[in-house]
Deep mutational scan, measured.
Amino acid sequence: MDSLVVLVLCLSCLLLLSLWRQSSGRGKLPPGPTPLPVIGNILQIGIKDISKSLTNLSKVYGPVFTLYFGLKPIVVLHGYEAVKEALIDLGEEFSGRGIFPLAERANRGFGIVFSNGKKWKEIRRFSLMTLRNFGMGKRSIEDRVQEEARCLVEELRKTKASPCDPTFILGCAPCNVICSIIFHKRFDYKDQQFLNLMEKLNENIKILSSPWIQICNNFSPIIDYFPGTHNKLLKNVAFMKSYILEKVKEHQESMDMNNPQDFIDCFLMKMEKEKHNQPSEFTIESLENTAVDLFGAGTETTSTTLRYALLLLLKHPEVTAKVQEEIERVIGRNRSPCMQDRSHMPYTDAVVHEVQRYIDLLPTSLPHAVTCDIKFRNYLIPKGTTILISLTSVLHDNKEFPNPEMFDPHHFLDEGGNFKKSKYFMPFSAGKRICVGEALAGMELFLFLTSILQNFNLKSLVDPKNLDTTPVVNGFASVPPFYQLCFIPV
């Protein structure tokens, strides 16, 4: 009986604490739906499609509103004006990374994606500088992407125009580009180590996009005490870190300090320079996690976009025909596509942009946080508050993009057929937390897609009208449904 009384008292205290925290903070924060004790607004949000729920709530509470995930307040920004004001106009104040408990377990605050403060700034600055020195957006990395595009075309030829699921092959190409940047090595598509790495990356994007992960991140005790797919994700990350550590040891034994070959060499050189400046942010643990982040951000996002792009091109054969006509006119058949071609191919450029806009790969991006107490639109948001960005509300804005739910390359073309930029184009987020590999991803999408369409016609196994382009999961990332196609050599 005594234990029951204690339990009831504990629960009562928890409920009172929950109510007090919510009521004391709500006077400062933007308005929002009334949260339930302990669980907050979790029942009012469709976990399978958070973005749709945010759109519905914005119609009631406006472009800036507050939700509670458990006891934790989260300020939501919906629509271009609110997102721009926060991420661009007040970029420094909104540059923090929001709480992501599962990532905390995986990387302990290291790396480039989930770190904060001085650690994040130094690692991000170093990573950007190193990638630029190796030619991100310049010639040397373009050579690597072109080489991988040629290998991709050869792998597709091996399908002999038979029906195939493109998931694996389209994942190999961007993964190999990242391998060449980090390890100075590309792998054969049949290499077992490479296959294991690909498998872990593919599993992780599916797990991260599941409703279960949303629950884990908002009720963090689940991570330590409950079984579930989150444990598989943590094991996959541990596998990748151990693999990278092996490569780091190989580099330490063979590195030429006067001739760095890749990202690992550059990081080890930085560690050597910083060894007298303790404590340094440049450690082996930081290198492991930064490399894992580059793999995660640079492989599955690009391969998922490529997979979605081919599905949309199957669905819209008239678009595919126009792209192939432009390829034939500008590039021809006797040389590989290059980035200089893009400025002469406005329709193809528009298609690449429209694919990214339409699929809305990361509907709410990753959570941000404010780095200080900030007054925002007459609300006071306390330091450390998590900020949720609705990228969907920007990419699918119906004023900027008429009929935003329709796939239409003319969203990025003017009346004369010239490519038209849009400030609403934010597939990689915006501001200080914009994806480090934005330029690389854009290069890969253009070169891989043009190389495929230069060499193959795409054949659907069903009537294009019957192809479903609805994402199968739409949590962290929008993942396309399973499909097969035939690559018919031109």
Score class of each variant (00 low, 15 high):
residue 294 L to T: 02
residue 163 P to L: 05
residue 285 E to S: 07
residue 4 L to S: 15
residue 267 F to N: 02
residue 401 F to R: 01
residue 219 F to P: 06
residue 323 V to R: 02
residue 326 E to D: 07
residue 468 D to I: 09
residue 399 K to D: 13
residue 43 L to N: 09
residue 108 R to I: 07
residue 119 K to D: 15
residue 203 E to I: 03
residue 381 I to P: 00
residue 72 K to I: 03
residue 213 I to G: 15
residue 63 P to H: 09
residue 170 L to G: 01
residue 237 V to L: 09
residue 192 Q to E: 14
residue 88 I to G: 15
residue 283 T to Y: 05
residue 255 M to T: 09
residue 216 C to K: 14
residue 166 P to T: 01
residue 300 E to R: 08
residue 62 G to F: 01
residue 175 C to K: 02
residue 124 R to L: 03
residue 75 V to K: 00
residue 286 S to F: 06
residue 88 I to S: 13
residue 447 L to D: 02
residue 489 P to D: 03
residue 96 G to C: 10
residue 436 V to L: 15
residue 218 N to W: 15
residue 195 L to Y: 04
residue 391 L to A: 09
residue 3 S to F: 14
residue 289 N to L: 11
residue 101 P to Q: 11
residue 143 D to H: 11
residue 223 I to K: 09
residue 380 L to G: 04
residue 49 D to C: 03
residue 321 A to G: 12
residue 146 Q to M: 12
residue 384 G to I: 00
residue 464 P to T: 07
residue 214 Q to L: 11
residue 488 I to N: 08
residue 435 C to R: 00
residue 253 E to D: 12
residue 285 E to I: 03
residue 387 I to A: 07
residue 285 E to R: 07
residue 237 V to N: 08
residue 323 V to Q: 01
residue 138 K to C: 13
residue 483 Y to W: 01
residue 9 L to T: 11
residue 374 I to C: 10
residue 69 F to N: 06
residue 340 Q to K: 11
residue 33 P to R: 02
residue 164 C to D: 00
residue 390 S to T: 09
residue 136 M to I: 12
residue 268 L to T: 04
residue 411 H to G: 02
residue 184 H to G: 15
residue 7 L to F: 14
residue 407 F to R: 00
residue 128 L to H: 12
residue 192 Q to W: 05
residue 276 H to C: 10
residue 397 D to T: 07
residue 235 K to D: 09
residue 358 Y to G: 02
residue 172 C to V: 04
residue 178 I to V: 09
residue 154 E to T: 09
residue 30 P to E: 00
residue 52 K to Y: 08
residue 124 R to V: 03
residue 124 R to A: 04
residue 270 K to I: 06
residue 259 N to M: 05
residue 76 V to E: 03
residue 207 I to R: 05
residue 483 Y to S: 01
residue 39 I to C: 06
residue 214 Q to M: 11
residue 357 R to Y: 02
residue 369 A to Y: 15
residue 11 L to I: 13
residue 81 E to Y: 06
residue 150 R to S: 09
residue 276 H to I: 09
residue 218 N to M: 15
residue 96 G to P: 10
residue 47 I to K: 13
residue 328 E to Y: 15
residue 149 A to S: 06
residue 144 R to L: 13
residue 450 T to H: 00
residue 149 A to P: 00
residue 144 R to S: 08
residue 108 R to C: 13
residue 148 E to N: 00
residue 344 H to M: 12
residue 327 I to D: 01
residue 471 P to T: 04
residue 448 F to P: 00
residue 71 L to R: 13
residue 302 T to E: 02
residue 238 A to C: 08
residue 63 P to V: 05
residue 395 L to P: 00
residue 276 H to A: 12
residue 349 D to M: 14
residue 364 T to P: 03
residue 163 P to G: 03
residue 476 F to T: 15
residue 119 K to N: 14
residue 362 L to I: 15
residue 177 V to W: 02
residue 471 P to R: 06
residue 386 T to M: 08
residue 260 P to Y: 05
residue 487 F to D: 00
residue 148 E to K: 01
residue 26 R to Y: 14
residue 446 F to S: 01
residue 218 N to L: 15
residue 311 L to F: 05
residue 459 K to F: 05
residue 371 T to E: 13
residue 355 V to C: 10
residue 380 L to C: 11
residue 34 T to P: 13
residue 183 F to H: 03
residue 21 R to H: 14
residue 247 K to H: 09
residue 205 I to F: 15
residue 403 N to S: 09
residue 129 M to G: 13
residue 203 E to W: 04
residue 481 P to H: 05
residue 262 D to C: 15
residue 196 N to T: 15
residue 387 I to R: 00
residue 476 F to R: 05
residue 131 L to W: 05
residue 344 H to E: 13
residue 163 P to T: 05
residue 481 P to S: 03
residue 260 P to R: 09
residue 335 R to Q: 08
residue 208 L to K: 08
residue 214 Q to G: 09
residue 429 S to I: 05
residue 197 L to P: 00
residue 177 V to Q: 00
residue 336 S to E: 14
residue 9 L to W: 13
residue 477 A to F: 08
residue 203 E to R: 05
residue 238 A to I: 07
residue 403 N to L: 06
residue 123 I to H: 12
residue 482 F to P: 15
residue 445 L to V: 14
residue 136 M to Q: 11
residue 488 I to Q: 14
residue 271 M to Y: 06
residue 430 A to V: 13
residue 108 R to D: 14
residue 8 V to R: 07
residue 489 P to Y: 01
residue 260 P to I: 04
residue 289 N to G: 07
residue 22 Q to N: 12
residue 51 S to Y: 13
residue 410 H to Y: 10
residue 11 L to A: 10
residue 129 M to T: 13
residue 331 I to D: 01
residue 124 R to E: 07
residue 123 I to E: 09
residue 483 Y to L: 02
residue 134 F to K: 14
residue 302 T to H: 01
residue 192 Q to R: 14
residue 409 P to K: 01
residue 84 K to L: 07
residue 233 L to N: 03
residue 20 W to S: 12
residue 236 N to T: 03
residue 28 K to Q: 13
residue 206 K to T: 07
residue 103 A to H: 15
residue 320 T to I: 06
residue 335 R to Y: 04
residue 142 E to K: 01
residue 385 T to W: 03
residue 137 G to F: 09
residue 28 K to R: 14
residue 194 F to N: 01
residue 42 I to C: 12
residue 348 T to C: 11
residue 408 D to N: 10
residue 387 I to P: 00
residue 5 V to G: 14
residue 282 F to M: 05
residue 219 F to D: 07
residue 214 Q to N: 08
residue 361 L to W: 03
residue 398 N to D: 13
residue 144 R to Y: 08
residue 211 P to H: 08
residue 351 V to A: 07
residue 437 G to V: 03
residue 247 K to P: 02
residue 99 I to Y: 15
residue 259 N to T: 09
residue 192 Q to P: 15
residue 365 S to C: 15
residue 292 V to I: 13
residue 470 T to F: 05
residue 87 L to E: 06
residue 401 F to L: 04
residue 263 F to H: 03
residue 269 M to D: 11
residue 219 F to T: 08
residue 217 N to Y: 15
residue 287 L to F: 08
residue 323 V to K: 02
residue 434 I to F: 15
residue 438 E to V: 10
residue 458 L to F: 04
residue 52 K to E: 11
residue 103 A to L: 15
residue 29 L to Q: 04
residue 162 S to K: 15
residue 342 R to H: 08
residue 46 G to V: 05
residue 439 A to C: 08
residue 241 K to A: 04
residue 351 V to D: 01
residue 285 E to C: 05
residue 458 L to R: 00
residue 459 K to M: 09
residue 160 K to G: 12
residue 477 A to I: 10
residue 204 N to F: 04
residue 375 K to H: 10
residue 54 L to W: 05
residue 112 I to V: 09
residue 307 R to F: 02
residue 490 V to I: 15
residue 54 L to K: 03
residue 375 K to S: 09
residue 277 N to D: 11
residue 465 K to M: 10
residue 370 V to G: 04
residue 4 L to G: 01
residue 300 E to M: 15
residue 389 I to A: 12
residue 193 Q to R: 09
residue 350 A to S: 05
residue 96 G to L: 09
residue 226 F to I: 13
residue 34 T to F: 10
residue 193 Q to M: 13
residue 212 W to M: 09
residue 205 I to G: 03
residue 138 K to Q: 14
residue 304 T to L: 08
residue 389 I to T: 11
residue 39 I to P: 02
residue 46 G to Q: 14
residue 463 D to S: 09
residue 359 I to P: 00
residue 433 R to I: 00
residue 367 P to Y: 10
residue 116 N to A: 06
residue 381 I to R: 00
residue 30 P to N: 00
residue 431 G to K: 00
residue 111 G to R: 00
residue 346 P to Q: 07
residue 387 I to V: 14
residue 384 G to P: 02
residue 43 L to G: 14
residue 188 D to Q: 06
residue 103 A to T: 15
residue 88 I to T: 14
residue 5 V to S: 11
residue 326 E to F: 02
residue 55 T to V: 14
residue 235 K to P: 04
residue 22 Q to E: 11
residue 128 L to I: 12
residue 63 P to A: 07
residue 327 I to G: 02
residue 480 P to A: 06
residue 175 C to M: 10
residue 58 S to C: 08
residue 134 F to Y: 12
residue 371 T to C: 08
residue 9 L to H: 09
residue 81 E to N: 10
residue 101 P to S: 14
residue 166 P to F: 00
residue 239 F to I: 09
residue 160 K to A: 11
residue 73 P to H: 01
residue 303 S to I: 02
residue 417 G to W: 05
residue 440 L to E: 00
residue 291 A to L: 15
residue 87 L to D: 03
residue 323 V to A: 10
residue 30 P to A: 02
residue 415 E to G: 10
residue 165 D to C: 01
residue 28 K to E: 10
residue 446 F to A: 01
residue 489 P to N: 02
residue 372 C to M: 12
residue 24 S to A: 13
residue 334 N to V: 14
residue 289 N to T: 15
residue 401 F to S: 03
residue 378 N to Q: 10
residue 402 P to F: 08
residue 232 K to V: 07
residue 346 P to K: 06
residue 147 E to K: 07
residue 291 A to H: 00
residue 446 F to C: 00
residue 36 L to T: 07
residue 109 G to E: 05
residue 303 S to Y: 01
residue 262 D to E: 03
residue 304 T to I: 11
residue 61 Y to S: 02
residue 41 N to S: 07
residue 226 F to K: 04
residue 148 E to H: 00
residue 386 T to K: 09
residue 266 C to Y: 14
residue 346 P to R: 05
residue 329 R to A: 11
residue 464 P to F: 05
residue 399 K to C: 12
residue 24 S to Q: 13
residue 349 D to C: 15
residue 151 C to Y: 15
residue 93 E to H: 10
residue 230 H to V: 09
residue 376 F to D: 02
residue 402 P to L: 11
residue 351 V to Y: 05
residue 408 D to V: 01
residue 165 D to P: 01
residue 110 F to I: 12
residue 244 I to L: 09
residue 401 F to N: 03
residue 418 N to G: 11
residue 20 W to N: 15
residue 139 R to L: 12
residue 37 P to I: 04
residue 460 S to V: 03
residue 262 D to G: 14
residue 328 E to V: 14
residue 450 T to C: 11
residue 388 L to V: 11
residue 94 F to W: 06
residue 257 M to A: 14
residue 385 T to N: 04
residue 133 N to P: 07
residue 248 V to M: 06
residue 204 N to H: 06
residue 426 M to G: 05
residue 104 E to L: 10
residue 160 K to P: 00
residue 84 K to D: 06
residue 28 K to N: 13
residue 22 Q to P: 14
residue 459 K to L: 06
residue 346 P to M: 06
residue 331 I to K: 02
residue 5 V to E: 11
residue 23 S to C: 14
residue 308 Y to M: 08
residue 259 N to V: 08
residue 67 L to M: 09
residue 205 I to S: 05
residue 51 S to H: 14
residue 227 P to G: 09
residue 238 A to D: 12
residue 386 T to G: 07
residue 128 L to M: 11
residue 409 P to Q: 01
residue 333 R to C: 08
